[in-house]
């Protein structure tokens, strides 16, 4: 009834004031009239099931990202991944958590077709405007850093291999067939994970290098990730500027592109990090 009152000809101002005086529902802030339910009980039941299912899908995203339980949220989120991808859900929402960390920029050094050298970096607040566009470049440099850093170095892989072989020998001698099968499966997944991590950063860095090569009409280009530390408050009070080069850490080479194609940097090369960064 109240609903109808609200929906009828509202040219009549007195009608409007009447509607607004209908007592509000105590459990909410709404002071609008309480209209009757429009959906039938079966419709509401179906909607309830759909809503609860959807909310489960929504919550499983941050429950499984960035950290997932191996026995609960991980396997469920894997099953829900198609829905997360289709609807662009499944994010962790850990904004500035667990701690606001240092930032990373991508530095590039190249040689133009005429032989001259050039150097640049992104994000570059002077040349990348408006701010949202700058932020896209910034997120790209952060992604490149994260992907590059997530690769395992040779030493780590060697240690993992030794640990695996030790476990394998131990379980084989104890004739633990079930654990052996699980161990081999885990090892396969681990190797696949490292392989795909390398593929990801190489694909991304290759594309970035290609775009920069075209933009600067260059014949070769090298990509580096560079971390900028967050200064201590005392340092700032002593006059250190936030854009000071003192806060920049040495360059960490990601890879290079030239006429022979893209080559990822050797992470175990003692020459990497290379060069002066400042």
């Amino acid at each position: 009834m109240a609903n109808r009152k609200r929906n009828t000809n509202s040219k009549n101002r007195s009608n409007r004031s009447e509607s607004s005086q209908v007592p509000s529902e105590s459990s909410t802030l709404l002071e609008l009239p309480v209209p009757p339910l429009q959906w039938s009980a079966p419709a509401r039941t179906i909607a309830t099931v759909l809503i609860l299912t959807y909310l489960f899908v929504v919550v499983m995203g941050p429950l499984a990202n960035p950290i997932a339980s191996r026995y609960f949220s991980g396997p469920i989120a894997k099953q829900l991944a198609p829905l997360h991808r289709i609807l662009f859900l499944g994010h962790g929402y850990r904004f500035f958590g667990p701690d606001p960390g240092p930032t990373h920029r991508l530095v590039f050094r190249g040689v133009r077709k005429d032989g001259s050298k050039f150097e640049g970096f992104f994000p570059d607040r002077k040349n990348q405007k408006p701010r949202l566009l700058y932020h896209r470049w910034f997120m790209l440099s952060e992604t490149l850093f994260v992907e590059h850093a997530s690769q395992a170095d040779a030493n780590f892989l060697r240690n993992r291999k030794i640990a695996y072989e030790n476990q394998l020998a131990r379980l084989t001698s104890a004739n633990q067939t079930h654990q052996l099968r699980q161990l081999k499966l885990d090892r396969q997944l681990e190797l696949r994970y490292h392989q795909r991590a390398s593929e990801r950063v190489n694909r991304l860095a290759n594309s970035v290098a290609n775009v920069l090569l075209d933009r600067y009409e260059a014949t070769s280009i090298k990509l580096f990730s560079q971390e900028r530390s967050i200064p201590f408050p005392e340092e700032v009070l002593d006059g250190l500027k936030l854009n000071s080069t003192q806060l920049l850490l040495p360059l960490n080479k990601i890879g290079e592109l030239d006429a022979n194609g893209y080559r990822a940097a050797n992470r175990d090369d003692p020459q990497n990090p290379e060069g002066s960064n400042r």
């Binding site: 500035f96 930032t103 408050p233």
Partner: peptide, 10 residues
């Protein structure tokens, strides 16, 4: 933490 966000040049 807020210092970490405000003192980040990028």
């Amino acid at each position: 933490a807020v210092w970490g966000t405000l003192a980040s040049y990028e």
